[in-house]
Deep mutational scan, measured.
Amino acid sequence: HNLTITQGKLFFHYNPKLCLSEIHKMEEVSGTKGRQERNDIALKTNGDQASCENELLKFSYIRTSFDKILLRWEPYWPPDFRDLLGFMLFYKEAPYQNVTEFDGQDACGSNSWTVVDIDPPLRSNDPKSQNHPGWLMRGLKPWTQYAIFVKTLVTFSDERRTYGAKSDIIYVQTDATNPSVPLDPISVSNSSSQIILKWKPPSDPNGNITHYLVFWERQAEDSELFELDYCLKGLKLPSRTWSPPFESEDSQKHNQSEYEDSAGECCSCPKTDSQILKELEESSFRKTFEDYLHNVVFVPRKTSSGTGAEDPRPSRKRRSLGDVGNVTVAVPTVAAFPNTSSTSVPTSPEEHRPFEKVVNKESLVISGLRHFTGYRIELQACNQDTPEERCSVAAYVSARTMPEAKADDIVGPVTHEIFENNVVHLMWQEPKEPNGLIVLYEVSYRRYGDEELHLCVSRKHFALERGCRLRGLSPGNYSVRIRATSLAGNGSWTEPTYFYVTDYLDVPSNIA
């Protein structure tokens, strides 16, 4: 807008934040220059609390790290170098490059900038070799853009010569660093050979998330399962459950009422301010606690030095998902009996873990797994792929695949051998790939016309006998059925096997 004052003059007093240069501009645009008398524009009460600059400061050096910015700028000295009290560095987070010096300023003089007072450097006698002032900004957020400017702080001049310097606002972004852990990993099994893994992005990506790394490792069953005799009275049979499938998407929606109208769909109840505040506090606490764990609990591995020492970490090797089922080394339970199943799973520490690289999504279907087997899954978020990966501390989750139908069934015939004193040795093959492992066998036998009897055969007993022995049988026709019990439950009964026990007292003698 054009402003013209045809008559009258300007009068400025007691404006401590208004620089004289701005008042002189007002004289020019209003056409009143030359009308004012000496005392109409006070030299001592206008701009006496402001830094009124008329020179431009330029930054000469900028260096960044993930949490620091090192700045240096060209030296500046007023005509009387004693008038320079120091520099004021202003900075704040700036997602967009549209910041002005006066953003967030209120009537009390406060604003949204963080201000650092910096002492002037030592003055050199040689004007050509003056030290460049600077400042190291610490405690910054990774991968965050900051708006920065600097200006001088000078003393009051009796001659009211307006001098000083100020830089333009520059924008500097800190470097990326390792992201925080992925949030809320959930693993479920939808079949006997697959596990579905879902997660949420890290709360602090500290860069642009480029991919996720998912490692999985087959877990050995508890050692007590191999040692305890679950045929003993009072000892509860062990059981394991597989990871249940995901709930429906509708039930997972946030901010939804727990109660549904019987007449149909209901609208979600909005969260109160107290609920939102509580969630923010919980989120802040979780982030602080995660940072504490990362800094205190997890110790970084030592990389190899120039002395030739090897990095103890196993090298990563990509495998196809079809090879995942046989990740671990199978060892027989008892070496003397080769027909026992290889369900003991000690994992070799030198073995390469299978892994998958996930790009542009937060889910993965891990296939080719062994049925009813526990897996430990390790999830890392990465925001750099080359020249070397920059990934987060791992988040861990466990899951067990679903049982395989008929995996616990005894394959092959049940054979028998009759000894003296009416002892019958029953023999059968253990299931080759049971659900988890076989903890015991149930032997059901009966003599024709009598009630059915049951015998429990422990895992250890089966390994020693290759089956079991029935003792003290009365003469007669017998039928026997056997079924295995694994961590997933009972298998199917075998087809009945028949044998006849004679009275050993009636056996004919070869003595003449």
Rank of each mutant, 00 (worst) to 15 (best):
A399S: 11
E265S: 12
K357V: 15
V345I: 15
V345W: 12
L321M: 12
H211K: 06
I209K: 15
F372S: 05
Y292I: 03
T497G: 06
L237Q: 04
Q429G: 09
A394T: 08
K357Y: 14
E404I: 10
G322S: 15
A395Q: 03
L440R: 09
T386K: 06
D261V: 15
R319P: 10
G234I: 14
Y441V: 03
A336G: 02
S486R: 02
R446A: 07
G368Y: 06
V358Q: 14
V297A: 06
E362K: 11
K236W: 04
E452G: 05
V393P: 15
F499A: 06
E310R: 14
K236S: 07
F355R: 07
G308C: 14
K361F: 08
I377C: 10
Q275E: 13
E452H: 15
E249C: 06
K317F: 11
G374P: 10
P314E: 04
Y500I: 12
P338Q: 12
D273P: 15
R376V: 08
N326T: 05
D385T: 00
V439G: 08
R481E: 15
G325K: 06
V345A: 12
Y445D: 00
I482C: 05
R286N: 02
V359E: 06
F355I: 09
F462R: 13
S239L: 05
V414Q: 06
S243N: 11
E389L: 08
R218P: 07
E279C: 02
E281M: 15
Y504A: 03
S344D: 10
P300S: 10
S283Y: 14
H371S: 10
V297G: 03
D323M: 15
N383P: 01
L379W: 03
C266Q: 15
S342E: 06
N295R: 08
F499M: 15
A263K: 06
H416M: 14
L293G: 03
W493V: 06
R353I: 13
A463P: 06
T497W: 13
I276R: 05
R481G: 06
L228I: 13
L455G: 06
C267G: 02
T340G: 04
V365P: 14
H371F: 09
K406V: 12
D229T: 09
V423A: 13
G234A: 08
A394G: 06
A394L: 05
V439A: 14
D273Y: 11
Y441Q: 02
S509A: 08
Q380D: 07
R376A: 04
N510A: 12
S492F: 02
R400H: 09
F462K: 09
P387A: 12
P244R: 13
S479F: 05
V324A: 09
N490M: 15
I366Y: 03
L369R: 05
E442T: 03
L277F: 07
T494F: 03
F215I: 07
L470R: 01
L473D: 00
E356H: 12
G322R: 11
S305Y: 10
W493L: 06
F337M: 12
K236V: 05
D250E: 14
E495H: 09
G489D: 14
D291L: 03
Y448A: 08
C468D: 01
L364E: 15
W216D: 02
E249M: 14
G264Y: 14
T415N: 01
V457C: 08
H352F: 09
N490G: 15
S344A: 13
C267E: 01
E433K: 14
V214Q: 00
N435A: 05
L437M: 14
T272P: 05
K236R: 13
P403T: 05
S268F: 14
T497S: 06
G449E: 15
P300V: 10
Q219A: 11
E247S: 11
Y478W: 10
T347Y: 10
L277V: 10
E389I: 11
R370Q: 12
V329R: 06
R301H: 12
S492G: 09
E452Q: 14
F355H: 08
R218L: 10
D222G: 07
R218T: 09
E282K: 04
S251V: 15
E442P: 01
P245H: 11
P205L: 14
D408R: 00
I377L: 12
F499W: 08
G472H: 11
K460R: 13
V443M: 10
Y448R: 13
S348N: 14
G472W: 07
P403E: 02
F246K: 07
G306D: 11
S251A: 05
R466C: 06
F215L: 10
K278N: 04
Y375I: 12
R313N: 14
S492V: 12
F337H: 10
E356A: 09
A335D: 08
S398T: 11
D261L: 13
S268D: 07
R353P: 15
V297W: 02
V397P: 15
P205S: 10
L505Y: 14
D408F: 00
S444L: 07
L237D: 04
E249P: 03
S486L: 01
L232I: 13
P205T: 08
L232F: 10
E290M: 02
H294T: 02
I209Q: 15
V439C: 12
R471C: 11
D323V: 11
S509F: 05
L213M: 09
N477R: 10
P338R: 11
K302A: 07
P413H: 15
C267Y: 04
S284D: 10
Y445P: 02
K233A: 10
H352C: 09
Y498I: 14
R318L: 07
P338A: 08
E227P: 08
A488T: 14
E362S: 06
A309M: 15
E290V: 02
A263W: 03
G449L: 13
G234R: 05
E404K: 14
G368H: 07
N477E: 06
Y448E: 15
K302Y: 14
P403M: 02
C391R: 03
P238T: 05
G467T: 08
S398W: 13
V480F: 04
